[in-house]
Design a protein around this nucleic acid. Structure first.
Lengths: 122, 122
DNA sequence: CCATCATATTCCCATATGGGCATGCGTCAA
DNA sequence: TTGACGCATGCCCATATGGGAATATGATGG
């Protein structure tokens, strides 16, 4: 059921709801990194990452549903390839905070004594 | 229990396990965006985002646990402020795919074109 | 058609939500 | 001291995992 029609008790959003949720899982991020090296069949991915085949397939399904990977048949195999376009929004969203992690903290909140103190304790 | 000691049945990782999980929730991202405008007390955040106070507090707790926000007491209130440093790793990780969302996909498109062409030649 | 290899799915579990509501708690003012 | 105000928590729910194991599906070669 589409989330916008759902009005019952809410739980954590599906991993397939968007890219942010999809990449929240470390192993899925590893898969994406591996795929930068080119297309690979499921079994190979599973092997390189030391995970079972069903596990790899499940993660790949999530990635496919949010559009981060594409698959094509290659004989008996199914090759998965990267489609990183969906990562761009995440990159841009975080980029919107760039000046905040570059600016010195005391300038950001120059009047905040507590933060200055916390910084000295580092 | 720390996840590295956990060996039972695994479920989805905690939202407090890392920044990736923390920002997977849309409302938490909204909170962070709002905080770019400066420190704010819980009630004000809740009001501006149209959410209940307990809800805002819970999200803020998650953000605090992964270090994306800091809080300090200000009399009766508790002011929350942004600490965006934790977003940098996310920005850099996604940045590692930058050339792929530009370049490599053209190659995939080219592949699709080849398929179409091959089909016409049949 | 059958045996086999490559994947995808289905079950079953225990856990971690995200929300609402009620309530505990610390701080400040009268 | 006693309220009142601002926040944090505790409880209860229904949902969505991430995993393992077993099994269904698919595609290929004989």
């Amino acid at each position: 059921m589409p989330i916008w029609e759902y009005d019952g008790v809410m739980a954590r959003a599906a991993t397939t709801s968007d890219v942010f949720n999809a990449i929240a899982e470390p192993q899925r991020r590893e898969i994406l990194v591996l795929l930068r090296g080119g297309e690979r069949p499921v079994t190979e991915l599973a092997g390189e990452l030391g995970m079972s085949q069903p596990r790899a397939s499940k993660h790949l399904r999530v990635l496919r549903e949010v559009g981060l990977v594409r698959d094509r048949k290659a004989g008996k195999q199914r090759l998965y390839g990267l489609d990183a376009r969906g990562l761009r929004p995440v990159h841009e969203w975080t980029g919107g905070f760039e000046r905040f992690w570059n600016e010195s903290f005391d300038r950001l909140d120059a009047y905040v004594q507590d933060l200055k103190q916390a910084r000295q304790e580092d």
